[in-house]
Amino acid sequence: MPVPILKQRDYLIATIQAALTDDDLKKLRDALVAQVGEFRSRGVIVDVTTLDVMDSFAARTLRDLSHMSRLRGAETVIVGIQPEVAFAMVQLGLTLEGVPAALDLEEGLAYLDRKTKRKTAAK
């Protein structure tokens, strides 16, 4: 089941709405990386609030997404990781190192605003 991607201002927002197969996740990653270029997006938010399991494949795909979109000029932030999911992830050894995380969509937007403003100011 494909994940809808919403474009808002400079940002792309993908809200995961159901349990995703590996294939769905890969498609999401590829779609986001493609659209970052297409819309010249500055930020990507992946909302995983409804995701009840984040295993090694999902974590790796999100990490890859973050690195790939950064190479294409957009910052990615993962929002909405549930407490239980975070707990299971760290026990499994998945820490999403180098990938910013925020509590929810609102926090994610605030994070990207700070991040992209700083970049603009520096230029």
């Binding site: 407490p83 975070a86 707990f87 992830m89 760290v90 026990q91 820490t95 999403l96 995380a101």
Partner: peptide, 12 residues
């Protein structure tokens, strides 16, 4: 250390 890492995943 895991507690610290898990908290970060929640943005804290």
């Amino acid at each position: 250390v895991q507690t610290v890492e898990a908290s970060r995943l929640l943005g804290a």
